[in-house]
Nucleic acid binder design. Structure first.
Length: 211
DNA sequence: AGCACGATTAACT
DNA sequence: GTTAATCGTGCTC
C-alpha cells in the first residue's frame, strides 16, 4: 500500500477549469455513515461553473442563502437541491469572494459496492453513479454535507489522489441541462469526461463485487 | 414560476 | 441494444 494523499486546499484554490480537469481520476471518499463502511469512487465526469457572469451558474443570482457556500473559501462542498428530489455535489474553487464550483457528474465506484447496490435499489452497476443526482443518492450526500470542509480532518466527504489521466483519455463539451441559458454560456465547453476509465483501473478497486 | 435531473415508458434499430 | 418524451417533486427567489 502506497501512502494515500488527500487533495489539499491549494488544489481547489486555482482556476476552476484546471480544477475540473484535474478532478478526473481523483477519488471521492464518503465516510461517517453506513456502519463505518467507506464508500469511494473515481471521478469520471465534471462541469465547471464560474462566477456571477456565467449565466449557467447559480451565483448569477448573487449572494443568497443558497449560493453562500460558493462565495466562500475553496475546498468546501456545495450541495444543493433541484427538481423536487435531487441533490447535487459541487466543490468550491478559487479564492473566497469569487463564486465558482465544479459539479461532480459521474463516478466509477471503487469501494462499498454492496452498500451502493442497496442504496441504488439493486439496479445494474452501469447506472449506479452515472449522473450527478445518482451519485448523491448512492453515497448518501444531501444538505447535511453542504459547506463541509473537504480539507479538514474528519470530513465525511473528501478527495484523494488516485489516477493521473493523459489528455487523450479526456474529452470536453457543452454542459448539460442549460436549456434556457443564453450563449455563450449554453455551449461553452466546460464539461470534462473520461472516455473510458477501464484501462486505467488496476489495483484501484477494492471491495466485493468489483471486477 | 422555474429549475445544472432521473425513472419510466414507448418507439425504434 | 438505443433515443425521445413525459413528468414528479419541493426548494429557491
Amino acid at each position: 500500500m502506497s501512502a494515500v494523499k488527500r487533495l489539499v486546499r491549494s488544489f481547489f484554490d486555482r482556476p476552476t477549469l484546471e480544477v475540473a480537469r484535474d478532478l478526473l481520476g481523483a477519488r471521492l471518499v464518503r465516510v461517517g455513515r453506513f456502519a463505518g463502511r467507506r464508500l469511494s469512487g473515481i471521478i469520471v465526469e465534471t462541469e465547471a461553473y464560474i462566477g456571477q457572469e456565467d449565466l449557467g451558474c447559480h451565483a448569477k443570482a448573487g449572494l443568497t442563502p443558497r449560493t453562500r457556500v460558493m462565495f466562500g473559501p475553496p475546498g468546501h462542498a456545495y450541495v444543493y437541491f433541484t427538481y423536487g428530489m435531487h441533490w447535487m455535489l459541487n466543490f468550491v474553487t478559487e479564492a473566497a469572494g469569487k463564486p465558482a464550483a465544479v459539479l461532480v457528474r459521474g463516478l466509477f465506484v471503487t469501494e462499498g459496492a454492496s452498500v451502493v447496490a442497496l442504496r441504488r435499489n439493486g439496479r445494474p452497476r452501469k447506472i449506479w453513479t452515472d449522473g450527478p443526482a445518482k451519485l448523491c443518492q448512492a453515497f448518501g450526500i444531501d444538505k447535511r454535507l453542504n459547506g463541509t470542509d473537504l480539507c479538514a480532518p474528519g470530513a465525511e466527504v473528501f478527495l484523494e489522489k488516485a489516477l493521473s489521466l493523459p489528455e487523450s483519455a479526456v474529452t470536453t463539451g457543452p454542459r448539460v441541462g442549460l436549456n434556457n441559458v443564453p450563449e455563450p454560456w449554453k455551449s461553452i465547453p466546460w464539461r470534462f469526461r473520461v472516455l473510458d476509465i477501464a484501462p486505467f483501473l488496476r489495483d484501484n478497486c477494492t471491495g466485493e463485487g468489483v471486477q
